[in-house]
Design a protein around this nucleic acid. Structure first.
Length: 415
DNA sequence: TCTGGGGTCCTAGGACCC
DNA sequence: TCTGGGGTCCTAGGACCC
């Protein structure tokens, strides 16, 4: 029994949740695009991956076909390693514009089933069907969605069917592709507890060896642990792991459009840099991108964060509050430059430079500072004009003098 | 030809105030 | 001379997700 804030008892209704997961999303969508352009080979049917660009030092696997998976290729590994296991591997580039479009197509179809949809990522959605079953069963809806996506959109999905988000997500991860799986409470022991503990959502590669040392090998082993002991040992994360392993998750399907909490861009450089002036040029380009995206959200940032990765993959970051919330390229860059100055050790070879802004607030909510002066307003007006041009003619159409060099270094993508 | 990029959330320590 | 905690904010770094 649950009680609301007035003390009235309320029977908590069982929620009806679906999790939709596109099978090999990037690879499937690229396969469809190629077929639509008249290519004969369906790359879903061969040993293929979507990969980064090795010449830009970002050669990793982003998605793999079933045949590549059978050879042991996994997402995130280097293309070099993947080819060792799978010598005939074919590598294709990703196309994020196309992916966004396919993702939107899926969203529009799912929207016909419920208003309570959470876009969890470009290829995953949660649906709260509790008030939208209309006399039908949850499982029937799952099959209908699965069939319609395949017929109308041309790619396949896995659908997880359960009474909470965690179990629905775990279920959609069972056998693939093009499957519907349930994971109801009574099925937890047979369908979930038997799985390796590494399969549990939010259990990553740092935690895994610690659990192995505790002789925890399956999700069931974790579920049997003493709750208080897990909290003592792992804090909040311990509680979450324990609850998840027992199928406990009371989180809501978050269907309201959320504003971002931070915006950032980072770039792996074509060559390692060891001159501060060169890194500053990269920072300026990043500041333009980040501030532009910030303005498109109509938000101001309160914190600037600069990240550096050295050539031996050590990460450093420094952050600082801005004196006033802003979306000005100039202000963001000025603080970023200062942070770089403080953290950069002369002569260190830098592989990656990142700039992100955090503690965002809506532009309308910003209390105009007493120091918000005329030149700031002028700056804002100027950037508005530039942004409009960018929206019309593409992001790279307009650039500031003095930044030309770094744009040769970083290939700008249209935002 | 080794190892992306975009996020969110949490933790721990120090500063500072009462 | 010696010795407090609690609360909040800020910052650096890490874990995890897709």
């Amino acid at each position: 029994m649950f009680y609301n804030k007035h003390g009235d008892s309320m029977e908590k209704r069982q929620r009806q949740i679906l999790h939709i997961d596109v099978n090999n999303a990037f690879l499937s969508w690229t396969a469809m695009d190629r077929l639509a352009q008249g290519e004969k080979v369906d790359i879903r049917e061969i040993e293929a991956v979507i990969g980064g660009d090795e010449s830009k030092r970002s050669g990793i696997v982003l998605a793999k076909s079933m045949k590549a998976k059978k050879k042991g290729v996994y997402t995130g590994e280097t293309l070099y390693q993947a080819r060792l296991k799978c010598p005939n591997l074919q590598v294709f580039k990703g196309d994020y514009k196309s992916y966004r479009k396919h993702s939107n197509d899926l969203y529009m179809l799912l929207k016909q089933y419920t208003d309570k949809i959470e876009r969890f990522s470009i290829d995953e959605c949660f649906l709260d069907m509790t008030d939208y079953l209309g006399g039908d069963t949850l499982l029937n809806k799952a099959y209908e969605i699965s069939r319609r996506v395949k017929q109308e959109l041309g790619f396949t999905v896995n659908v997880g069917v359960a009474y909470n988000k965690l179990l629905a997500k775990m279920a959609s991860d069972f056998m693939k592709p093009d499957k519907v799986h349930t994971l109801f409470e009574e099925e937890i022991p047979t369908k979930m507890w038997t799985l390796p503990v590494s399969e549990l959502f939010m259990l990553g590669k740092k935690t895994l060896p610690k659990l192995y040392n505790m002789k925890i090998k399956t999700i069931g082993d974790l579920a049997k642990q003493d709750k208080m002991y897990m909290i003592k040992k792992f804090g909040k994360h311990g509680l979450m792991m324990w609850e998840y392993s027992n199928g406990i998750d009371n989180s809501e399907v978050n269907y309201l459009e959320e504003k971002p909490k931070g915006v950032g861009n980072s770039v792996t450089l074509p060559q390692d840099l060891c001159e501060k002036e060169k890194i500053e040029e990269v920072l300026l380009t990043l500041a333009e991108q980040v501030a532009y995206r910030l303005r498109r959200y109509k938000m101001y940032a309160n914190v600037v964060n600069v990240q550096l990765r050295t050539k031996d993959f050590k990460d450093f970051s420094h952050q600082r509050k801005l004196p006033n919330a802003t979306s000005n390229t100039k202000d963001i860059y000025a603080l970023a430059k200062q942070l770089l100055e403080e953290m950069y050790q002369k002569g260190t070879f830098i592989r990656l430079v990142g700039l992100r802004v955090d503690n965002l607030v809506e532009k309308d909510e910003v209390q105009l500072s007493l120091f918000h002066n005329v030149s700031d307003e002028k700056q804002e007006k100027l950037e508005e004009v530039v942004d409009k041009l960018k929206e019309k003619y593409g992001y790279s159409s307009i650039t500031r003098a003095g930044k030309l060099h770094s744009e040769e270094v970083i290939k700008l993508k249209d935002v």
